[in-house]
Design a protein around this nucleic acid. Sequence first.
DNA 1: ACAAAAACTGACCGATCGGTCAAATGCTGT
DNA 2: ACAGCATTTGACCGATCGGTCAGTTTTTGT
Lengths: 198, 198
Amino acid sequence: MLSDRSARLGEGVGDLSRNVRSRTRREILDAASGLFAVAGFKGTSLQDIAAEVGCSKATLLYHFDGKDAILVEMLAPAVGAFGVLDRQLAGLADDTVQLAAVKGYVDLVLSFRREVTVLHGDIPGLLRHPALADVQGMVDRLLDALASRSPDPSAQVTALMVLGAIPIVCMKPVAMNDDELRDVLVRSAAGALNARGA
Amino acid sequence: MLSDRSARLGEGVGDLSRNVRSRTRREILDAASGLFAVAGFKGTSLQDIAAEVGCSKATLLYHFDGKDAILVEMLAPAVGAFGVLDRQLAGLADDTVQLAAVKGYVDLVLSFRREVTVLHGDIPGLLRHPALADVQGMVDRLLDALASRSPDPSAQVTALMVLGAIPIVCMKPVAMNDDELRDVLVRSAAGALNARGA
DNA sequence: ACAAAAACTGACCGATCGGTCAAATGCTGT
DNA sequence: ACAGCATTTGACCGATCGGTCAGTTTTTGT
């Protein structure tokens, strides 16, 4: 679970080498994310990924330190963006944080559909992973923001609902462009959050 | 966990035999559902279940035809109740079906939290199971009902959101009794559904 | 052209998976 | 007491899992 070879090697090599290497790595990550999304992390074997990429299983483990490393590196951009959102929301006041959380969360999910699908597909198993440990805290703070940082249990339940409502659009394909979809998601989520008090 | 098997000697022979058998089966199903809920179906081995029950792996396979059979029988009551809801909604008019769908779905989820958690934890893998094939159709019809049977894509997206919003309360324990929780869920879901058009 | 480095692979490993089976054990009715 | 049935179990099976390694092919710098 330590750093893979790309960190140690590839320092003094030529551009072509780096391109070939990074391209293979990207192909592996693409194939893996697709398979993880439809069959889950545990439901996808290294053999499956190797067959999809068109290489041997050993090649995967030459480029990555293990199956977990593939998963972690695949989720890295999404986790990073989630961290940015987390820090943004931390600086907002209680009366403005809710709408910002909804919009930011919707944007995040729509920007990383595949990653969200993978994460959503095996929440208990993956959030237990050490490399994804901080995600749990970010989720908790996002929930708090969605509830306007209110201690009211009903507000927290509604926040929980919004948390679960957005990622599901990653599963079923929908006949809408992303701008319209984003609008519907934000408006409906806001409707749910407002309905609690009304 | 099977220590008090010899109690109630005065009972009828057939009844006792059947009770012992059905109780062991129930213990297996309870242990399995708990493990499935926290680790997922694929993430739970027969060894894990056997250890939790306190018996051998072979005993599980004496009572059930296989790991899948445990899963199917565990989900059977929930699937049956879902079927009842499905038939109820089928007889409702387009302008009354939405609220009934919300209430019925919320009740269903709250009545079968564990089963919903298990199903929700491995949707793609489990809905592919032959014994759960009809669930997919029921989900589609529930989505249609939640959208008031409207072909409007935005209505269908909101229905999808409600579908995903409810089961998440099964994951995180919440400090509310079921009546209050049911009320919040129904009201917030209705808020999301109404916000679309407003 | 050629040695070194990088990329790749087949063969193999221990562990674990779901599942089978014959034998052992406990319980029941007579 | 005894025959018969239900229940339980350890030993075992083939398949597959993630992962390792020695060796081969391809690419690179000179």
